[in-house]
Each structure stands twice: as structure tokens, then as C-alpha cells.
């Protein structure tokens, strides 16, 4: 444990672009998730679905139901974004438990990128759903005096979103690495089990908060 957890190691350079470790790991995870989905959904059956199809339907339907309950509206239009957010975060968080891999979400750039996507998506969806003027007017609600604070809260929400995710995942992995270097091979196993739970919880929290932000932006729930 010699390098700082706040540094992002560069794997290779693509011209002037440094391709860092979280990007490479994310590509791998993307390949696994996309190929897995393509393979699992090749032969879907309406009647008597197989176990894999059943699990996939359960996951997708649970995500849709959870998003709908959070946003108080039909979740189907938001399912690709928020569902992918949860699945990617869950897979990315848990990937840190694989020996030799480091979770992409343990890097601030990944968490910031996801928070940035959520921020931009909430603005775009809010404008598209409510109209530009009505959406902008929402920042002056309940009084124009609060306009600076409302604008600032948009940014701080995204910032807190990314920092929360980054801090939890990074700290978990860091603690496991420290314990592993100090105590031995099997000592960090309970901590890894805890990290398994924390990874799923963080994915859930990030997704729910994103749903709340987007729901507030499109007006289906009260803006928090």
C-alpha cells in the first residue's frame, strides 16, 4: 500500500488522452454487462421463462417499481438511465472485491462523472418536461431571493452525491487494503462482506437520490 488512494493511475496513453485504470475497468464491466445482457435476452419466452430470464425480469421490474415509487410517476422513461446507474454502481462497487481489480467508483473521477450525468440529465429532463421558462422559474421558488441558493444547491447536491459515493467505496477498499497488509490473508474477509453490503447500499442510495433529483426537476415530486 504505497500509492495514494486519491491518485488515478494511467494505464496507457491514447494519443494525448491518458487512459486511466477506472476507465479500463469500466470498459471491462461494460463489456461484461452488455454481452451478458445480450446473451441472456437472446431467447426470451413469454410462457415458462428460464431462471436467468426470471432473475432479469425480477431485477428490471424491481428497479422500475422502486423508481416509480420514488418519483411518483411512470418509471419506464427513466428506467434506462436510473436502472443502468444502479446496475453499474452495484457491479462497479462489487468489482473491487475481485482480487487484482479496483472499483472504478473508488476514484473520484468516476463518481464525479456519474454525478455530472445525473445533474445534466435532471436539467435536460426538467426543461423538456416543464419547458425552459417554467423550469428556470422553479429556481426562484418560493422567492427570487433564494435563486442563488437554489442554483448553489443544484451543484452541491451533485457534489455531495459524488463525494458520498467516492468516500464510501474508497474508504472501504482502503481499510481492507490496510487490514490485509497488516493482519494477513483471511482477516479482512468480514470487512469484505461488509463492503459487499456497503457497495449495494451505496448503489441504492446514489440511484434513489438521482431519482429524487430528477423527479424534482420534472415536477413529479417536491423539489428537495
Amino acid at each position: 500500500m504505497t500509492e495514494s488512494p486519491l491518485t488515478t493511475p494511467v494505464v496507457f496513453l491514447l494519443g494525448p488522452v491518458p487512459v486511466t485504470l477506472p476507465v479500463v475497468v469500466t470498459w471491462g464491466l461494460m463489456a461484461v454487462m452488455a454481452l451478458g445482457s445480450a446473451l441472456a435476452t437472446r431467447r426470451l419466452r413469454v410462457e415458462r421463462p428460464g431462471p436467468v430470464q426470471t432473475v432479469l425480469e425480477l431485477v428490471v421490474e424491481s428497479l422500475r417499481r422502486q423508481i416509480a415509487e420514488t418519483m411518483q410517476t411512470d418509471a419506464t422513461p427513466f428506467l434506462p438511465l436510473l436502472g443502468t446507474l444502479f446496475l453499474y454502481l452495484a457491479v462497479a462497487n462489487l468489482s473491487g472485491l475481485v482480487p487484482g481489480l479496483k472499483a472504478p467508483t473508488a476514484f473520484l473521477e468516476t463518481a464525479a462523472a456519474l454525478a455530472l450525468v445525473v445533474l445534466l440529465a435532471s436539467q435536460a429532463l426538467g426543461i423538456r418536461r416543464r419547458g425552459l421558462w417554467a423550469y428556470l422559474k422553479g429556481f426562484a421558488h418560493p422567492t427570487p431571493l433564494l435563486l442563488p441558493l437554489n442554483l448553489l444547491s443544484e451543484l452541491t447536491r451533485a457534489f455531495s452525491l459524488s463525494i458520498r459515493l467516492f468516500g464510501n467505496v474508497m474508504s472501504g477498499e482502503f481499510v481492507i487494503a490496510i487490514v490485509l497488509s497488516l493482519a494477513g490473508l483471511f482477516v479482512p474477509v468480514p470487512l469484505m462482506a461488509l463492503e459487499l453490503l456497503l457497495g449495494l447500499v451505496q448503489a441504492y442510495i446514489f440511484t434513489i437520490l438521482a431519482a429524487v433529483f430528477i423527479g424534482g426537476a420534472v415536477g413529479t415530486i417536491e423539489k428537495g
Binding site: 487512459v19 486511466t20 476507465v23 469500466t26 452488455a34 445482457s37 441472456a40 455530472l116 450525468v117
Partner: peptide, 20 residues
């Protein structure tokens, strides 16, 4: 990295929307 991860995520959104 931030930009690539954001793009990666959007691509993943498209892939999962298409295949899942």
C-alpha cells in the same frame, strides 16, 4: 477520465437499453 467515464456511462445506458 471524468469525461471518458461520463461517456462510458452513457454508452452503457444505450447498450443496456438496447440489450436488456
Amino acid at each position: 477520465t471524468l469525461l471518458l467515464q461520463a461517456v462510458n456511462f452513457l454508452i452503457l445506458v444505450w447498450l443496456l437499453r438496447r440489450f436488456l
